[in-house]
């Protein structure tokens, strides 16, 4: 390598590192301005752990486990499981046809139907299920039904997107062969598309259960049924020891549900020999 060449490389490298430095400086300045704009007092960050520590040690500890053993609370836990169950089933059943409509390679209505299904799935996904719950409460009143509906929408948004991605990555050859042979759209879906995505769909369905169950534990926060309401009530009344017990119970339930679904997914993988989505 000639010396001029080395010089050019060095110069280029110096220019690039200068550019990188300026970029970093701009990012830092942007970050600082943003924190100022959001009124974040960084000095509070220094005392945060102190305060959090005393808060956890004096108010949240010890957890009031007696509270979560009361029959009325346990009833709400059962209600939470019921809500998650119904919402997952209804959501998955609705998400499959919607995903079929929304997938660009298999949609039976590639025009308006596809766009409508896409907007529906994205909309269900973009809005948080808690906000959906409040909207449904505004119309239907407090209770379990608005919670189930909100969770169903959340389930459609979550599973629908994954289903669409799965359908869009199938092998198109069987679908096109069936179409060329004159098969109708329903036949194409059931015998051309579904056999290719069945295992993945079951895996996604199991995973969706986890997500929906996790949301179901708190969706009642604004009055949509389940144990979330108790979380709200104890938090509002500053009964932090009870809040701690409820949080620990939620974590335990979520872990149990995740362990079960992990085993279900592994069993599915073992049976079919296909890799099932795992996150």
């Amino acid at each position: 390598m000639s010396s001029t060449n080395t010089l050019m490389v060095l110069q280029k490298r110096r220019r690039r590192s200068l550019l990188r430095f300026l970029l970093l400086l701009a990012l830092g300045a942007g970050l600082w301005l943003t924190l100022q704009y959001l009124n974040v007092r960084l000095e509070r960050f220094a005392t945060l752990f102190d305060r959090l520590g005393t808060l956890l040690a004096t108010r949240y500890y010890p957890p009031d486990f007696e509270y979560i053993m009361r029959p009325r609370f346990l009833q709400s836990v059962l209600e939470t499981i019921h809500m998650a169950l119904l919402a997952t089933l209804a959501g998955l059943l609705l998400a499959i046809p919607l995903a079929w409509l929304a997938a660009f390679n298999a949609s039976p209505l590639p025009g308006v139907g596809k766009s409508a299904a896409r907007v529906f799935i994205t909309g269900a996904r973009a809005i948080h299920e808690m906000i959906w719950a409040i909207v449904f409460i505004m119309v239907l009143g407090f209770g379990v039904l608005p919670g189930v509906l909100a969770l169903t929408l959340g389930c459609i948004g979550f599973a629908g997107k994954l289903f669409v991605e799965e359908i869009e990555s199938i092998d198109d050859a069987p679908v096109e062969a069936m179409r060329a042979a004159g098969a109708g759209p329903l036949a194409v879906f059931f015998f051309g598309v579904l056999p290719q995505v069945r295992t993945a769909f079951i895996g996604i369905g199991i995973y969706t259960w986890d997500v929906v169950f996790r949301s179901a534990t708190v969706v009642g926060f604004f009055g949509a049924g389940g144990m979330g309401w108790y979380l709200r009530r104890t938090a509002d009344q500053l009964q932090s020891d009870r809040v701690a017990a409820i949080i620990l119970l939620i974590a335990a339930l979520v872990v149990i549900s995740e362990v079960i679904s992990h085993h279900a997914r592994t069993a599915l993988e073992g049976r079919t020999g296909q890799r099932v989505l795992a996150r």
Binding site: L78, E79, H82, L85, L86, G143, V144, L145, G225
Partner: peptide
């Protein structure tokens, strides 16, 4: 689930 929660809880 419907009988246990949705009907009495709505």
């Amino acid at each position: 689930a419907v009988q246990g929660s949705v009907i009495p809880g709505t």
